[in-house]
Design a protein around this nucleic acid. Structure first.
Lengths: 337, 337
DNA sequence: GAATCTTATGTAATCGTTTTCATTTTTAAT
DNA sequence: ATTAAAAATGAAAACGATTACATAAGATTC
């Protein structure tokens, strides 16, 4: 009988039921305090009577923002990212923001498609966990953004992460303190800022300890098979190495397996240290000694900074570093005397 | 000088530059074939000249759909889900749909918030990887949805997954074929349909093989510590067990560690089998023999069925099962005779 | 070359909210 | 009791795209 039967209720329907104007309904919902208690109650009652839920599209259009932030990452299945995501979500939820995840898979076409969400208004700002900076012009001038974990050199975006050089330094020091001298480093992928920082920290610790003669660098990467190759390389070329510091946990696991296949016992013959403290580091055997990053806090802090940008408040530019710590488990021991 | 300077270009700007009406611009962009080549080219040129990008909010409002589908899952960091997500993404991307991920974390308030995306128009349909059905009335009548992996008993949504009873049957048969008789089963969490199906498959295989006297059920769960407890229980109560079939890989790893701590060698003293074939199953030692699910295909198929619903085409109702297979690795061997 | 049929385009209404501005009601101050 | 100030509300105009409808231009037929 009524004109439209099975359509979602709109603000007009609520207004009619509550006996007020649509403007008042909107106000009661968005800024309850500027509406008299009486009308507010009437509106809320009408809302639940009608089953009203705001039409996001209309809201976005009118307000000219989406209430969504875009999280760009290379690989959603990488456990390293999940705790960061939780941190992001916590803050975003508190601020009533939705998060949209964009998975680049290392593909630049995908990356461009994902960035399109910022140009078409589906998202208001971005958190970039991707090593690569957005291709030129793909990200509209002045879009709020924060980079996480990997610095994006040459971009104006603030950055939140771990002080990788310092953490790598600490990790190497830790091995030195256990009595090791011949300590190798398996790096990350060559084009990565993380790789550079961690390598620098290792070199610095070795040098400061007067061990520059023992610096042993092996090109690696962040995945298991990179570690396997590195372990093989190590066994072939520097068999007397007593400890290895790896650029991340996954490659450390590969190194360990590979060394075991070459007859080494870990940690009895050789110690191996990782970086990241992924969940699996505790399940792997030997349990992995590694560097723990405050991933949840990193996510939170990054989201907070993005929030400040979105609200046009002044925000911290440059890098923000959160604390790391060494987690001692079973893959590191003192050297065989 | 012109009225608005730093605003995003709209369809009007494109129309002005191309010397056509906004209607034509829209048509050139949405259905290029119904516009003359000449105007089409002019419009495309104007688009790149102005740097135009459609305003999603306006589009959503006018079209009354978001072009987004909601993927609801309990835990984004669970590696089991990532390949399913890839499958979903592949099909969604092909259909020009954005995917929005909602992480319930097992929290029903979060769940309700996530479902709000369907009521407020931010998403057009849902893929539910969550074991729980949406709370009554939370999901608007007739919303397109498909459940993945876990059946949602009592809901009208189609389901895509593995035939868990059959797969568990096959896994148990596999152990029997290796010569095992005293085979225990560590179940999943008690309230779960997967748990029931896998337990049933185990019981059926045991019974059919005349081994009903050897049925040994241990209440477990899907996480590592569940497996540890189960392993302990097993060592205490059924020390002569020669093989264990676990409800998933993570708990299988816990079982293995726990049995090792009780002095068992795996697989020499006791064989352990998992379920899922998560990426880590190949890295864990001993490498885990397990049941591989076609996770990517499951994601693809589910998304396809959702697509059919969205397009109001007839769609397959009931369950669709994709093939599983046993992956033989090192955690299973014949029994010590 | 007129009549008919296609094809291409334009005009203007519409989607549902928010918000400016104007107006009314209430409260406070004298 | 009057006036001024503050608080609460309403009317109506946006936001930017799509599309029903109307019209114009081209193509086809006789």
């Amino acid at each position: 009988m009524t004109k439209k039967s099975n359509n979602r209720p709109t603000v007009r329907d609520v207004a009619r039921v509550a006996g007020v104007s649509t403007a008042t309904v909107s106000r009661a919902l968005q800024s309850p305090d500027i509406v008299s208690k009486k009308t507010r109650d009437a509106v809320f009652a009408a809302v639940s009577e009608t089953g009203y839920s705001v039409n996001t599209a209309a809201q976005m259009l009118r307000r000219n923002r989406s209430g969504t932030i875009l999280v760009i990452l290379p690989d959603i299945s990488n456990p390293f990212f999940s705790k960061i995501l939780s941190g992001i979500e916590e803050v975003a939820t508190r601020a009533n923001l939705t998060i949209l995840i964009g998975n680049t898979n290392g593909d630049s076409t995908r990356y461009a498609n994902i960035l399109e969400n910022l140009r078409n208004g589906r998202a208001d700002g971005a958190l970039i966990l991707n090593g690569e900076a957005p291709p030129d012009g793909m990200l509209p001038e002045g879009t709020p953004a924060v980079s996480i974990s990997e610095r994006l050199d040459g971009t104006p975006y603030p950055h939140v992460g771990t002080d990788n050089e310092r953490a790598a330094f600490d990790a190497t020091r830790y091995l030195i303190e256990q009595g090791h001298r011949k300590i190798a480093h398996v790096t990350g992928p060559q084009d990565n800022t993380l790789t550079k920082d961690r390598r620098d920290g290792y070199v610095k610790a070795m040098t400061e300890a007067g061990l520059s003669d023992h610096i042993r660098l092996i090109d690696g990467g962040f995945v298991y098979s990179d570690g396997e190759h590195a372990g093989h390389h190590l066994a072939k070329n520097w068999p007397d190495t007593t400890a290895v510091f790896c650029a991340n946990d996954e490659s450390a696991m590969g190194v360990i397996r590979s060394l075991q296949q070459h007859g080494y016992s870990v940690p009895d013959d050789i110690s191996v240290m990782g970086f990241d403290d992924v969940p699996f580091a505790r399940i792997f055997q030997p349990e992995l000694t590694t560097v723990h990053q405050a991933r949840n806090l990193i996510g939170q802090r990054a989201m907070e900074i993005l929030l400040e940008q979105l609200e046009k408040k002044p925000f911290s530019t440059g890098s923000v570093y959160l604390d790391h710590r060494i987690v001692s488990r079973n893959s590191v021991a003192g050297p065989r005397n």
